[in-house]
Amino acid sequence: MLCAIATRTTKSVWSRNRNPATFKASSRRTYHGNMSKTTQLKKVFLEMGIIILIAISIGLAVNHRMLLDILNGTKSAPIPSPTFSSAENSQIAPAGLLQVRELYEKDLALFVDARETPAFDAAHIRKAVSLPVSEFERKQPEFRKKHDLSTRLVVYCSGYGCHDSRLLSEKLYNTGYHDILVFEGGLPEWKEAGLPVEGTNK
């Protein structure tokens, strides 16, 4: 019943102004007719709903494969790693969660957090050290003193939307660290996997 009313209203909303030639005339009639302000607003909200529904349907239709893959579990954790374009950075390799996790558990790498200090203080991978890209020049000498150039580094930041880990790894590479992995899933993926995190706001 409700559905029928909705369909009827929908139809009238869409059909009334469909023809551009009659649009002006009909809209003037509606605007200055006896349609109240709230009815007008209701109409607009209805239109908004229809627009959103149509858009969502298109999105679902276009991306149904990706979504089904995820639902069936045939798609592993997110997103193919963007490749590093410049050849001189060939030693900087992207790394997935599994690889990074193994390094972590066997204590085979130093985890470097590329985010700003407040973000690091709030939450970071346990045992990771902070080296914000923005303060690299200032903090780099100290970092260099503490960690030998042959140290294997895993650099991370806030996940796929974040560029800092790559910037930082390039800078580290240029200072002489040549065994660098970029953990592109970053802290969000790490947290989601339930791996150890520490900080004031875990």
């Binding site: 969502i56 991306n63 990706m66 979504l67 995820i70 806030s158 996940g159 939307g161 993926e189």
Partner: peptide
């Protein structure tokens, strides 16, 4: 991935949002 970085939705919903 960008949606996931906001850390508000679970894995599948991030993709649902990204799709639509």
């Amino acid at each position: 991935g960008s949606v996931a970085a906001y850390d508000v939705l679970p894995f599948f919903l991030n993709h649902l949002v990204a799709a639509t």
